[in-house]
Design a protein around this nucleic acid. Structure first.
Lengths: 137, 137
DNA sequence: GCTGCCGTTGACGTTAACGTAAACTTGGCG
DNA sequence: CGCCAAGTTTACGTTAACGTCAACGGCAGC
């Protein structure tokens, strides 16, 4: 059994930056805001697989329009401070609240999708009409 | 048939502000950015039902994380400049693009919902364990 | 030893989406 | 008439989420 197993991969800041198409500045910024706490090798930051997952959560949050603060909360939902779990009920409440928000968002999304469909149909119709006019003249 | 029919209702700026729980400043700001073009009675702005619909679109866009610029585009999808319809194809492309974005967003939403469910379940479990410990001692 | 290249911190700049404040007009009413 | 409430414009302030230098350290290769 060799010591160089597959477990506990690590990443450099530029590796992560490239993988997720963001800048190193951005990653450091997230750390500054307390969303990431990578290990260090002297000066240099070393990111674990868990850090990478957190980044994924942050970026997904961004796509959903969450603020960094909100993403921070979400991350803590996944990694509740082991000793800090006396706030479990608070956490559950937060989750429920967030889920409510996501639900309205989902409704908004569906509505907008439907309306976009209709808008496209109208545009397509208009285009057809124009073609007919030009070919029949 | 009286002249005071139900058609073409109008709204004052503060009426709309109250209805949608935003400030008048915000509404004027949207106008400044070209999202609204209310009629005027001298100085005073007068909003039509169409203006109100546009506001609804803007606010829904906001909930979905759209920028005002994007909401502006969306609004134009609903009210394509009649004479300006030579850009219909461009418009359709925009709609398709926007729908793609909404699709990823929908996936993100579903994923996050699912994961929140799991997180809540884990928290609930943890709570149960704690109760058992305290009652069995 | 010099040159890149990657990494670091720190400071300042930028954009979007409003908030806030000042200074003014205008219609209604007691 | 005096005054208030609601409206207006203009201008500056604010927050979040980075971008953009600047100045520096370490090390790999020539």
């Amino acid at each position: 059994m060799s010591a160089t197993s597959t477990k506990s991969r690590t990443y450099s800041i530029s590796q992560l930056a490239e993988e997720f198409a963001i800048t190193t500045r951005t990653i450091r910024f997230y750390e500054e805001k307390g969303l990431l706490q990578p290990k260090r090798n002297g000066q240099t930051r070393i990111y674990s697989a868990a850090d990478r997952v957190k980044l994924i959560l942050i970026l997904r949050g961004k796509r959903l329009g969450l603020s960094l603060e909100e993403s921070k909360d979400i991350i803590e939902m996944y990694h509740p401070d082991q000793d800090n779990s006396h706030q479990l009920q608070t956490l559950i409440d937060k989750i429920r609240e967030k889920r409510e928000q996501l639900k309205t968002q989902l409704d908004d999304l569906r509505t907008m999708m439907r309306e976009l469909d209709e808008a496209e149909a109208r545009c397509a119709d208009a285009l057809t009409v124009m073609k007919n006019v030009t070919t029949s003249s």
